[in-house]
Design a protein around this nucleic acid. Structure first.
Length: 418
DNA sequence: TCTGGGGTCCTAGGGCGA
DNA sequence: TCTGTCGCCCTAGGACCC
């Protein structure tokens, strides 16, 4: 059996844990740069605030409805997430952390367990120890556990937040209830194609022929169909290193000066290199991308990217940054107002076990240098060591005008109880 | 004025060697 | 030696997820 444990309105719930005044209140959490709404409490959803709403267009609506609008506080959410995931590991050794707010669990050898009771125990322990409400769906396959989770969430009064699909009747009933577009793995495009074929629910999808599904779509959809039929084809993912690492950001304004862009790219590249070193990896390929603001149609648009292949794998900030900055010159266009840029590193290999190059190799001084930089940056967070091509004076700051304190990760922000 | 960020997987199509 | 075919590898782009 598999379980999907999903935190309810996770970001909004994290904020509520430390600010009880928000209990029962409508809350909206904003994306980076306070751009658009990325998480809403049930109350805010009920008022009609949509996901992805640009806040500058919905400001008046939020004010009129008393919606508490907050900037996203990722240190807090990340820390709360790891607390939840650690609790889940007490229930089974087989846990796949699927995203910041949900995990799949697999139960092997739990044949005589009452899964409804077990699911309730998970929910109540997480709520008691972290204050985060969750929903639990349990079923014989991953895709069905996703469906069960949706049932648990939609009918809290009947299910108490836990739903188990453990019979053929329950499987069919759940599949007939769920709209095809709400099924895990069926996005906007597939939904349109399936609906055109008369396929309205997940149950309709399972009634299509295997051959037709395989021919018309990819192997992913075929596996999904089998999973929904109760025949497990989507397996629990092992924890592994990332295959690509990205740092991309929208700017506070638009920029048409190549030197600004180069500075940003250098910072993003440095951040990618740090992430590489953290997971003990090096990369072969650096991809740099730039784009103008697609919402400003009256401006000249440009969207571009380029990839640079390195002759040896590296995680040195110096090399990755230099390589990314030189790539900017090859794709930058004069007269374009750029709004977003990013660096992606890929072709990732383990640092201590990679193919050597016959003629070319990394400067041996880089590795100890990077180690020292990482050490100092971890110890003195406010005095970060930067590269020469990053702006040493300018502090690039994201717009975060409504940020809550870092209650669990900053000693100065710990709550004082009087 | 202000519209996020970070991932994975799959397929098609071209290059290239056997 | 030339040509056709097959299969592998790589890349770009699309689709999906949270």
């Amino acid at each position: 059996m598999f379980a999907l444990v999903d935190c309810n309105n996770f970001y909004a719930s994290c904020e509520r844990v430390f600010d009880p005044n928000l209990q029962g209140q409508p809350i909206a959490i904003l994306s980076n740069n306070d751009g658009c709404v990325i998480s809403r409490s049930d109350e805010a959803k009920a008022m009609g605030l949509p996901m992805g709403a640009p806040i500058f267009k919905w400001e008046a609506f939020c004010k009129a409805n008393g919606i508490h609008v907050l900037s996203s506080n990722y240190p807090l959410y990340g820390d709360m997430s790891s607390r939840v995931m650690n609790i889940l590991k007490q229930f089974t050794p087989d846990v796949e952390v699927y995203s910041i707010d949900e995990s799949f669990l697999e139960f092997k050898g739990f044949d005589y367990y009452n899964f409804n009771d077990y699911g309730n125990e998970m929910r109540s322990r997480i709520l008691k120890w972290t204050g985060i409400p969750t929903c639990v769906g349990i079923a014989p396959t991953k895709a069905l556990s996703k469906v069960a989770n949706k049932v648990a969430r939609k009918f809290p009064k009947h299910t108490g937040g836990v739903y188990v699909i453990d019979s053929e009747e329950k499987r069919i009933k759940a599949l007939k209830w769920i709209d095809i577009g709400s099924v895990w793995g069926i996005g906007y495009n597939l939904q349109k194609r399936l609906k055109a074929k008369g396929c309205k629910t997940a149950y309709d999808f399972t009634q299509l022929s295997d051959d037709w599904v395989r021919k018309s779509f990819s192997i992913t959809e075929w596996k999904l169909k089998k999973d929904l039929e109760g025949n497990s084809k989507i397996l629990l993912d092992e924890p592994r290193n990332k295959k690509a690492i990205a740092t991309t950001r929208s700017f506070d304004f638009t920029y048409s000066d190549i030197n600004y862009i180069k500075e940003r790219i250098s910072t993003f590249a440095t951040s990618c290199a740090e992430k590489l070193r953290k997971q003990g990896s090096s990369c072969h390929v650096v991809i740099v991308s730039l784009r103008s603001n697609p919402f400003r149609k009256e401006h000249k648009q440009h969207r571009t990217s380029t990839s640079v292949h390195l002759s040896y794998p590296t995680n040195s900030s110096l090399i990755i940054s230099n390589c990314a900055v030189s790539a900017v010159s090859s794709i930058f266009r004069e007269g374009i107002e750029y709004k977003k840029a990013g660096v992606i590193v890929t072709g990732i290999v383990p640092t201590d076990n990679h193919q050597l190059h016959l003629f070319d190799a990394e400067n041996p001084k880089h590795q100890p240098l990077m180690k020292s930089i990482d050490f100092i940056n971890t110890k003195y967070k406010s005095h970060k060591i930067k590269l020469g091509n990053q702006d040493l004076k300018r502090t690039w700051k994201m717009r975060q005008e409504r940020l809550s304190p870092k209650y669990t990760t900053n000693i100065n922000d710990i709550i004082v109880v009087k």
